[in-house]
Write a protein that binds this DNA or RNA. Structure first.
Length: 289
DNA sequence: ACCCAGGCGGGCG
DNA sequence: CGCCCGCATGGG
């Protein structure tokens, strides 16, 4: 708690970011109309909350002394505060539909998360819903994570999960995805070092991830976007698909491949950011949370 | 009861 | 290639 990072002069809306269901391992508590965000980084815990004058403060809830990590470096990277969101908006604000979403969810940030954490979470996400995904992830953290304090466990890294069995994972609620998880753990322990991949090479990343059984185009794109921060990934899930069809194709069904081409033409190299605004606004047409 | 969820692999034509 | 089906599970 001694070190505090004041986030100023930055377009950053904590509530929209948390509710956009993109950092699926974050915890959020509401007070008044604000959100107190809490997340683990390895064996440390970081909190972010609004101050009276509507600024944001980030601080250590618990800092593991073995980590040389600087708080501001972590927060700046995690929420992409190194780039000007208004510049991104200029790049993707190509029509009135996306303009509405940008204005409504102004300050919603994409996050950059640990590659393995992102991989595991989005393997679980397939044929599933946000609420259940969060529950299953929580079970896996409880089962395989390392204890940080009385309330918190770290997100289990590959080594923590090297002996996971199908039965164990099913008990966490993973269902048929259990064998995909086991397969991915094995693959990334023995074949590919997730932390040595080039974040800027979209094609190479997509090829590597889709080679793995249990990871297809959509999950690979989520990993590339939210695990490596590559904005050229445009994950198309049911919400984004519906939203694109509704807003740009008169509600007529389109093939995913055509929607990918459309996104590339419409939003270019920043399409990943546009995707998050479409996803969040699409979901909120139906329900909150 | 029925439908759906941040999809994917496999089988078939 | 494209298309279609089954898949575990819990909430609305």
């Amino acid at each position: 708690m001694d070190e505090i990072f004041q986030i100023e002069n930055t377009n950053f809306n904590l509530k929209h970011t948390f509710e956009s269901a993109q950092p699926l391992t974050f915890y959020g508590d509401y007070y008044e109309d604000k959100v107190l965000l809490e997340y683990t980084y390895k064996n440390s815990i970081i909190g972010i909350k609004s101050t009276e004058n509507n600024k944001l403060n980030a601080y250590w809830i618990l800092k593991n002394n073995n980590e040389k990590l600087k708080l501001n470096d972590e927060v700046i990277r995690r929420f992409r505060l190194f780039e000007d969101l208004d510049y991104i908006y200029k790049k993707i604000n190509t029509d009135s539909n996306i303009d509405i979403a940008i204005k409504k969810y102004n300050g919603m940030r994409l996050t950059i998360n640990d590659p393995w954490e992102t991989t595991l979470v989005f393997i679980i996400s397939q044929f599933n819903n946000v609420k259940r995904i969060r529950g299953i992830v929580k079970n896996i953290i409880n089962r395989y994570g390392e204890k940080i304090d009385e309330k918190h466990k770290s997100f289990p890294m590959l080594e923590n999960m090297s002996t996971a069995t199908k039965e164990d994972l099913k008990n966490c609620g993973t269902g048929f995805r259990a064998e995909y998880i086991i397969n991915a753990v094995d693959y990334f322990i023995n074949n590919v070092d997730l932390n040595k991949l080039n974040p800027n090479n979209y094609e190479e990343l997509h090829e590597i991830f889709t080679e793995i059984k249990g990871i297809g185009d959509k999950v690979a794109d989520c990993i590339i976007l939210m695990g490596y921060g590559n904005l050229r990934a445009f994950p198309i899930d049911v919400w984004v698909k519906r939203q694109l069809e509704r807003l740009y194709f008169k509600g007529e069904k389109q093939k995913v491949s055509k929607l990918q081409d459309f996104a590339w033409e419409q939003w270019g190299d920043y399409r990943g950011y546009a995707q998050q605004y479409l996803f969040h606004s699409g979901r909120n047409l139906t329900f909150k949370n």
